[in-house]
């Protein structure tokens, strides 16, 4: 790069030194400048990732006795809605019956609740399409219906109809006792 411009200047003593060595210095200096710029870019990008306090957001505990059979309670967890649903035997049966139906995101009902706790369904309450909050009990399958773009979920929270690609997400949670769960 230097050659072209040097040539355009009053430069009567054209350098007799080895041109490859001369270029090396300029290329190395240019590369060092580019490297420094790149090294600075990373902190500027990374600062937009979740901060330490955001990552440390506490897990929540939830008392299940508040949820009547057939009802759903919505709590806020990590800034998103969390569905805790107490399913009736009929709803469970309807979900199990469809385990072998043509599912877009195949999963059995058994895989979506804790062993022996079939009545309790805990789901992240955001539609897997574009993040709206589905309404409970709506849609063709009696599970959830997302009003934004018409996604239908069954009573196991599996996607059955509409644009959403995946089943409603089951978060990491554990039963602390028969009536208490800890999410996160």
């Amino acid at each position: 790069m230097a050659d072209t411009v040097v040539g355009a200047t009053p430069d009567p003593h054209a350098p007799g030194a080895d041109p490859s060595r001369r270029d090396f210095i300029h290329i190395a200096a240019g590369a060092a400048a580019a490297g420094a710029a790149l090294a600075v870019v990373w902190p500027l990008v990374d600062q937009m990732n979740p901060a330490g306090d955001t990552l440390a957001l506490a897990s929540i505990e939830f008392d299940l006795t508040k949820v009547e059979p057939g009802q759903q309670v919505v709590v806020k967890w990590r800034g998103k809605p969390l569905f805790v649903r107490n399913r009736t035997p009929e709803q469970i049966a309807a979900a199990v019956k469809d385990d072998n139906a043509a599912l877009r995101d195949p999963q059995t009902d058994e895989e979506r609740h804790k062993p022996g706790k079939a009545e309790w369904l805990v789901l992240v309450g955001t539609c897997t399409h574009l993040g709206c909050v589905p309404t409970v009990g709506g849609g063709d399958y009696g599970g959830w219906f997302c009003p934004c773009h018409g996604s239908h979920y069954d009573t196991s929270g599996r996607i059955r109809k509409g644009p959403a690609p995946k089943n409603l997400e089951v978060p990491t949670y554990a039963f602390l006792s028969d009536t208490k769960i800890k999410v996160g």
Partner: peptide, 24 residues
Amino acid sequence: GAMVYLLIFTVLLYFSYRRIWRNV
């Protein structure tokens, strides 16, 4: 790391500078 890098960068630029200016 930053100081070592900057030092190398500055030294490289110095030689680049000397070389470009040597005949002016």
